[in-house]
């Protein structure tokens, strides 16, 4: 894994989290770390130390809501999208798609002689 690669992913960590929660409803911290690693095929070496701050920031911004459930002999904190979070997810995914499209044009320009 190159350093540059990891930087590209890092910028989109929030978007990845929002998208995951959008698909799966509610998730807890450990589940999210595992899923993010799986999705990015280990390319994005997000440390656990980066994931929780990202979650807490999204929560403070009002994009995520939390729920507590007793699982086995311990408490588990679940995250889910708020209404504002759902809207923001749509926006960020659109932005990301546009970004990907312009990057594709940059990397692989469509030469045409008119």
């Amino acid at each position: 894994m190159s350093m540059g690669n990891s930087k590209l992913y890092k910028g989109s960590l929030n978007t990845i989290i929002l998208k995951l929660l959008d698909e799966r409803g509610k998730m807890y911290g450990y589940e999210i770390t595992q899923k993010v690693k799986e999705l990015t095929k280990g390319e994005l070496n997000i440390t656990e130390g980066a994931l929780y701050p990202a979650l807490h920031k999204l929560e403070a911004e009002g994009l995520l809501d939390v729920e507590i459930a007793k699982v086995d002999n311990r408490l588990r904190k679940y995250y889910k999208l708020t209404e504002a979070g759902e809207k923001e997810t749509v926006n960020r995914l659109q932005e990301l798609e546009e970004f990907i499209r312009s990057m594709q044009n940059l990397v692989n320009p469509n030469w045409s002689i008119s």
């Binding site: 701050p53 807490h56 920031k57 403070a60």
Partner: peptide, 15 residues
Amino acid sequence: GFLDVVEKKRKAMSL
């Protein structure tokens, strides 16, 4: 370790 998580949590909570 957890220091960074605590520090950033504090910032998020101030917000």
